[in-house]
Simulated scan of single mutants.
Amino acid sequence: MELPLVVGVDGSEPSLGAVDWAADEAALRGVPLRVVYASLWERYEGIAPAQAPNKPSDQVMAEDIVAGAARRAQGRHADLKVVTDVLPEEPEYALVRESRTACALVVGTRGRGGIVDMLLGSVSLTLAAHADCPVIVLRGSHDNQAAPDTHGRIIVGVGEHPEHSAAVRFALEEAQRRRVPLEAVRAWRRTAPATTDQALPTAESARQPERQAAEELDEALGDAPVDVEIHPRTAEGHARKVLLDASHGADLLVIGAHRRGDRFGLQLGRVAHTVLHHSACPVAVVPQRW
Rank of each mutant, 00 (worst) to 15 (best):
L3V: 00
P14M: 08
S15W: 03
D24P: 00
E25H: 08
E25N: 05
L33T: 07
V36R: 04
W41F: 14
E42S: 12
R43K: 12
G46V: 10
S57E: 14
S57R: 15
D64N: 13
D64R: 11
A69E: 06
A78L: 11
P91A: 11
R97P: 00
T101E: 14
A102M: 09
C103Y: 00
T109D: 09
G113Q: 12
G114S: 06
V116S: 15
V123H: 09
V123Y: 10
S124A: 15
L125G: 13
H142G: 07
P148R: 09
P148W: 08
I154Q: 03
I155A: 05
I155S: 05
H161W: 01
P162K: 06
H164G: 01
H164V: 07
V168M: 08
L172D: 04
A175W: 05
R186V: 09
A192Q: 14
T195D: 13
T196A: 15
Q198F: 12
L200A: 15
L200T: 12
P201I: 11
A220V: 02
P225Y: 06
A235F: 00
R240V: 04
L244E: 07
L244K: 05
A246W: 07
G249I: 03
G249Y: 08
G249L: 11
L253D: 07
L253P: 06
R259L: 14
F264D: 09
Q267I: 00
V271Y: 10
V275G: 10
H277D: 10
H277R: 15
V283C: 11
V285M: 03
Q288E: 13
R289F: 07
